[in-house]
């Protein structure tokens, strides 16, 4: 799925990384606990989260993710956007809640992918 499709499906706003929307992503995870992302993510390129701080971007960097979706209209601060730009990570914000956002992407074909360390 292209990131542009995620934007469309989630009614999202692109706040950073407008030039990377044609990139393909194949799996995603939804999580607010960054240690769990670090423990269980394997190759998921998209992180949906309701947590909105610098550690979300750093966690995504560590896991080589391409795109972060802040759900429930969380607005990232300038320092978050700066780090995302430096790290080539697309940032989206969506008004949808976590459960709905994940469900919409899943039913449209974006899989959960494999789990690391299972």
């Amino acid at each position: 799925m292209k990131i542009s499709k995620i934007v469309e499906l989630l009614g999202a706003e692109v706040v950073c990384g407008e030039d990377r929307l044609e990139e393909e992503v194949h799996s995603a995870c939804g999580c607010d606990m960054m240690s769990d992302v670090l423990a269980f993510v394997k190759d998921q390129a998209v992180l949906l989260t309701g947590l909105c701080n610098l550690q979300v971007v750093r966690t995504a960097v560590m896991m080589d993710m391409k795109c972060i979706v802040f759900v429930r209209n969380k607005k990232p601060t300038d320092d978050i956007l700066e780090l995302a730009r430096e790290s080539d990570i697309v940032i989206l914000t969506s008004p949808k809640r976590m459960y709905t956002a994940c469900g919409v992407l899943y039913t449209n074909g974006l899989q959960g992918g494999t789990v690391a360390h299972s």
Binding site: M34, S35, A39, N53, V56, T59
Partner: peptide, 15 residues
């Protein structure tokens, strides 16, 4: 509330 402190840090480091 910042996304850490779930008792996964040291196990993750070992893993």
């Amino acid at each position: 509330s910042l996304g850490f402190g779930a008792g996964m840090g040291l196990p993750n480091m070992k893993r």
